[in-house]
Amino acid sequence: MTCILAALGAGNMFQANQAHAMLSYAFDVPSEFGVITGLVLAALVFSVIVGGMPSIASVTEKIVPWMAALYVGMALIVIISNIGQVGAAFGAIIEGAFTGAGVAGGFIGALIQGLKRATFSNEAGVGSAAIAHSAVKTKEPITEGLVSLLEPFVDTVVICTMTALVITIAGLNVGPYDGSGLTGVTLTAASFTETAGIFKYLLALAVVLFAFSTMISWSYYGLKSWTYLFGEGKGPELAFKLLFCLFVVIGATIQFGAVIDFSDAALFAMSIFNIVGLYLLMPVVKKELHSFIARVKSGEIKAYKK
């Protein structure tokens, strides 16, 4: 149930909301036109999740890695062109983490906010990515675990640090954070635009594609959970798909604050049960990992080089 809520919140409404927020920022689209963004995204999402035909998702899959490269490239340009401020930016980030500057509740407040955003970003411990990894056919399930370790590293350590540097260098992170000021994707976009005006257009393209591909991934997680609860069959599956598309439209039209609160709550609820499960399964994972490493060392599992 919590996964379904997270799929509808973090994996759907938040994505649609931020896609429209980005369009509003980059092209000055009024927020009441969110329903159009929502309807267009919902139609495309429906066409993908209805199943079976070649869809726009396969095209998006090929484009998104290039968009990621574009994002990293833009971040590097901002960082390199402001290289003198990087040290001060790191200092401000570390100082903010321990003093809780700009966050209610001081150090604990900053810790909670940091955990919320990190969980949202890399999904570590939530159990969502595990659904996708579990679909992989492999004789060594532990390898999927090892591969998945890389995801939080790339996402949080590399991408989020670069984004944090861009935002801190621009110095626009001054609130208010309830959606009325620069927040979420608009804060990021405004920070990038401080260096080059064209960045907002490139970011708009990247954000829409990222949002779309994230919605597709989460629709799968949600559908898996839905069919676990209500059983497989055309009726229940179609019901979820329609509900998912409806939430795309809702997400694009409502306020950022409501969307992020709902998404955070759903992800938090999801991670509670998942972390309990992780703790109980820890001995099994440990045994599997030791067995895998021992077999790699003994040569039973061979490492192939190109």
Binding site: V48, G51, G52, S55, A135, S217, L223, E232
Partner: peptide, 30 residues
């Protein structure tokens, strides 16, 4: 058919075979 974006499902093909060994797909759906 296994997909990254949805549940796996069964799909069926109707193919024809010619006397020269060519196989041609006619129908392909679930």
């Amino acid at each position: 058919v296994q997909s990254k974006h949805g549940l796996s499902y069964g799909c069926y093909e109707l193919n024809l075979l010619t006397q020269h060994g060519r196989r041609i797909n006619i129908l392909n759906h679930g």
